[in-house]
Deep mutational scan, measured.
Amino acid sequence: HHHHHGSGALAALHAEGPLAGLPVTRSDARVLIFNEWEERKKSDPWLRLDMSDKAIFRRYPHLR
């Protein structure tokens, strides 16, 4: 159930192989992290948004 927010940013994801479903670039990863943060913020208003490279690598090590 993907609803768009204002920016309408869509992340490019790997379609197949071992990385299927994972973001292709760091900016794609940022979109995913932001979208998930927006969702989680509803139940956790104090949740901090962390889109640093460090956060991205921790989450998606293949982007190193």
Rank of each mutant, 00 (worst) to 15 (best):
Ser43Cys: 11
Glu39Gln: 15
Asp53Trp: 05
Arg40Phe: 10
Arg64Asp: 10
Leu49His: 02
Trp37Asn: 01
His1Cys: 11
Gly21Cys: 07
Arg40Tyr: 09
Pro61Glu: 05
Lys54Val: 07
Leu49Asn: 02
Glu36Gln: 08
His5Ile: 15
Arg40Ser: 11
Phe57Val: 08
Ser43Gln: 14
Lys41His: 10
Glu38Asn: 13
Arg30Met: 13
Pro23Ser: 01
Gly6Gln: 10
Pro45Trp: 06
Pro23Ile: 01
Arg59Gln: 06
Leu47Thr: 15
Leu63Val: 01
Ala9Ile: 14
Gly8Asn: 13
Asn35Phe: 14
His4Val: 12
Lys42Asp: 11
His1Gly: 13
Asp28Pro: 01
Ala55Phe: 10
Pro23Trp: 01
Val31Ile: 14
Thr25Trp: 04
Ala9Ser: 15
Ala20Ile: 12
Arg64Ile: 15
Leu22Ala: 04
Ser27His: 11
Ile33Trp: 02
His4Asn: 10
Ile33Asn: 00
Glu16Met: 08
Glu36Ala: 07
Pro61Thr: 01
Leu19Cys: 07
Glu16Trp: 13
His4Met: 14
Ala29Ile: 01
Lys54Pro: 08
Gly8Asp: 10
Leu22Ile: 03
Gly8Tyr: 09
Arg58Met: 10
Val31Arg: 15
Ala9Cys: 09
Tyr60Ser: 00
Lys54Leu: 15
His3Ile: 08
Trp46Ala: 15
Asp28Met: 03
Glu16Arg: 07
Leu63Gly: 00
Ile33Pro: 00
Phe34Trp: 13
Asp44Thr: 08
Leu19Tyr: 14
Ala29Val: 01
His5Arg: 15
His4Gln: 09
Asp44Leu: 06
Leu22Glu: 03
Thr25Pro: 00
Arg30Val: 07
Arg40Pro: 01
Glu39Met: 10
Leu13Glu: 05
Leu22Val: 03
Lys42Trp: 06
Val24Ser: 03
Ser27Trp: 14
Arg30His: 05
His4Thr: 11
Ser43Gly: 08
Asp28Leu: 01
Arg58His: 14
Arg48Tyr: 05
Gly17Val: 02
Asn35Gln: 15
Thr25Ile: 01
Ala11Ile: 11
Asp53Cys: 06
Ala29Met: 00
Leu32Ser: 03
Asp53Leu: 13
Phe57Ser: 06
Met51Asp: 07
Pro45Ala: 08
Thr25Ala: 06
Arg64Met: 11
Ala9Thr: 15
Pro23Val: 01
Lys42Ser: 10
Ser43Glu: 05
Leu63Asp: 00
Ile33Phe: 05
His2Val: 13
Arg40Asn: 13
Arg64Gln: 09
Val31His: 14
Ala12Leu: 14
Leu22Trp: 04
Gly8Thr: 13
Asp50Cys: 06
Ala9Val: 13
His5Cys: 12
Asp53Ala: 06
Glu38Ala: 13
Arg48Glu: 10
Arg48Val: 14
Leu22Lys: 07
Asp50Lys: 04
Gly6Leu: 15
His1Leu: 15
His4Tyr: 12
Lys42Gly: 07
Trp46Thr: 15
Tyr60Arg: 00
Pro45Gly: 08
Asp28Phe: 04
Ala15Phe: 08
Leu49Gln: 03
Ser52Asp: 03
Leu10Phe: 12
Leu22Phe: 07
Leu47Asn: 04
His1Phe: 11
Pro61Phe: 03
Ser27Cys: 10
Ile56Trp: 00
Ile33Ser: 01
Leu22Gly: 02
Ala20Thr: 12
Ile33Cys: 02
Thr25Tyr: 06
Ser43Phe: 12
His3Thr: 15
His62Met: 01
Asp50Tyr: 03
Pro61Lys: 04
Tyr60Lys: 00
Ile33Thr: 02
Gly17Trp: 04
Val31Gly: 04
Arg48Gln: 13
Asp44Pro: 04
His2Glu: 10
Lys54Trp: 12
Arg59Asp: 04
Leu49Ile: 06
His1Ala: 15
Leu47Pro: 04
Glu16Phe: 14
Arg59Val: 14
Ser27Ile: 09
Gly17His: 02
His3Trp: 11
Phe34Lys: 07
Arg64Thr: 11
Arg30Thr: 04
Ala20Cys: 09
Glu39Val: 11
Leu10Trp: 06
Ala12Trp: 12
Glu38Tyr: 13
Thr25Leu: 04
Leu49Tyr: 06
Ile56Val: 09
Ala20Phe: 12
Pro18Thr: 07
Lys42Arg: 07
Gly21Thr: 04
Pro23Thr: 01
Lys42Pro: 07
Phe57Thr: 07
Gly21Pro: 02
His1Val: 12
Ser52Gly: 04
Glu16Tyr: 14
Lys54Cys: 09
Lys54Gly: 08
Ser27Glu: 15
Gly6His: 11
Phe34Gln: 05
His14Ala: 02
Glu38Met: 15
Glu36Lys: 04
Pro45Ile: 09
Met51His: 05
Glu39Gly: 07
Ser52Phe: 01
Thr25Phe: 05
Arg58Ala: 10
Lys54Arg: 09
Glu38Leu: 15
Ala29Leu: 00
Leu32Asn: 02
Leu10Arg: 08
Leu63Trp: 00
Glu16Gly: 11
Arg26Thr: 13
Trp46Val: 09
Arg30Ser: 03
Glu16Asn: 11
Val31Lys: 09
Pro45Tyr: 03
Phe34His: 08
Asp50Ser: 04
His5Gly: 07
Leu10Ser: 15
Pro18Trp: 04
Ala29Pro: 00
Ser7Lys: 10
Asn35Thr: 09
Phe34Pro: 00
His4Phe: 14
Arg30Tyr: 15
Met51Tyr: 06
Glu38Ser: 09
Ile56Ser: 00
Asp44Cys: 06
Lys54Thr: 14
Asp50Asn: 07
Asp50His: 04
Leu13Val: 13
Met51Gly: 02
Ser7Cys: 10
Lys54Tyr: 08
Trp46His: 09
Arg58Ile: 09
Glu16Gln: 15
Glu39Leu: 11
Thr25Arg: 07
Ile33Glu: 01
Ala15Asp: 13
Ala29Thr: 00
Val24Gln: 05
His14Tyr: 08
Leu10Val: 10
Trp37Gln: 02
Gly6Pro: 15
Tyr60Ala: 01
Val24Pro: 01
Pro61Leu: 01
Leu49Thr: 03
Pro23Asp: 00
Ala12His: 14
Val24Ile: 08
His5Tyr: 15
Ala9Leu: 09
Leu47Tyr: 15
Leu22Met: 11
Leu47Met: 11
Leu13Ile: 14
Ser27Leu: 12
Ile33Asp: 01
Gly21Lys: 02
Leu10Met: 12
Ala12Arg: 11
Pro18Arg: 06
His14Cys: 04
Ala20Asn: 07
Gly17Ala: 02
Leu22Thr: 04
Glu38Asp: 10
Arg59Lys: 14
Glu16Asp: 11
Lys42His: 09
Arg40Lys: 08
Leu32Tyr: 05
Val31Trp: 13
Tyr60Ile: 00
Pro23Ala: 01
Tyr60Glu: 00
Gly6Met: 11
Leu32Ile: 14
Leu19Pro: 02
Tyr60Pro: 00
Asp53Arg: 09
